[in-house]
Structures are given as C-alpha cells and as structure tokens.
C-alpha cells in the first residue's frame, strides 16, 4: 500500500487499507458489501490525518475543491 502524507499515520492507514481492500474484493464486488466493516479502523486513521491536514493548511484548500466537485456527484451518483 501507499504511504500517508503524514508518517505518524502510516500504521493506522496500513491497517485500514488492508481491511478495505479485503472488503472491496471479497464482499463489495460480489454484491455483499452494503455495510462498512472497516469503519472503526477508518475513524482511527481519519483522526490522525485530520489534525495533520489542519496543521499544514490543506483542509482549507480541500473545502474549495469539494465545492468544485459537487457537479461530479450529480453526474456520477446515479445509475445509468
């Protein structure tokens, strides 16, 4: 798996990524993946990451980009 931009988050990220990949390939793609089994691990990872994003001022840039991406949701969140 790839590294985190914050080295201190690498360990929790690795745990979350492995959990997600297993869920994605074994359950989600087989139509059995409606619930997120990796939510707890994601919470740990996210907590670590959020403080780093704030410290480096990346959170503000993300807010703006998210606004821009709203139109993509309208395009891609519905089934064709």
């Amino acid at each position: 798996m790839s590294a985190s931009l914050a080295p201190e988050c690498n360990e929790v990220k690795e745990r979350y990524d492995s959990c997600f990949l297993k869920w994605y390939s074994e359950k989600y793609l087989r139509g059995k993946g409606t619930t997120d089994e990796c939510a707890d691990l994601f919470k740990d990872y996210k907590q670590c990451l959020t403080s780093v994003l704030k410290k480096r001022g990346i959170d503000k840039m993300l807010e703006e980009a998210r606004e821009d991406h709203k139109e993509n949701d309208a395009l891609n969140m519905r089934r064709k």
Partner: peptide, 12 residues
C-alpha cells in the same frame, strides 16, 4: 506519487 490518503468513503 509519494502518498495517497483516503479522506472519506461511503456506499450510497
């Protein structure tokens, strides 16, 4: 590419 971080994820 030196890092890839997941910011959010959910199933609709």
């Amino acid at each position: 590419v030196i890092a890839v971080d997941t910011l959010s994820r959910h199933v609709d």
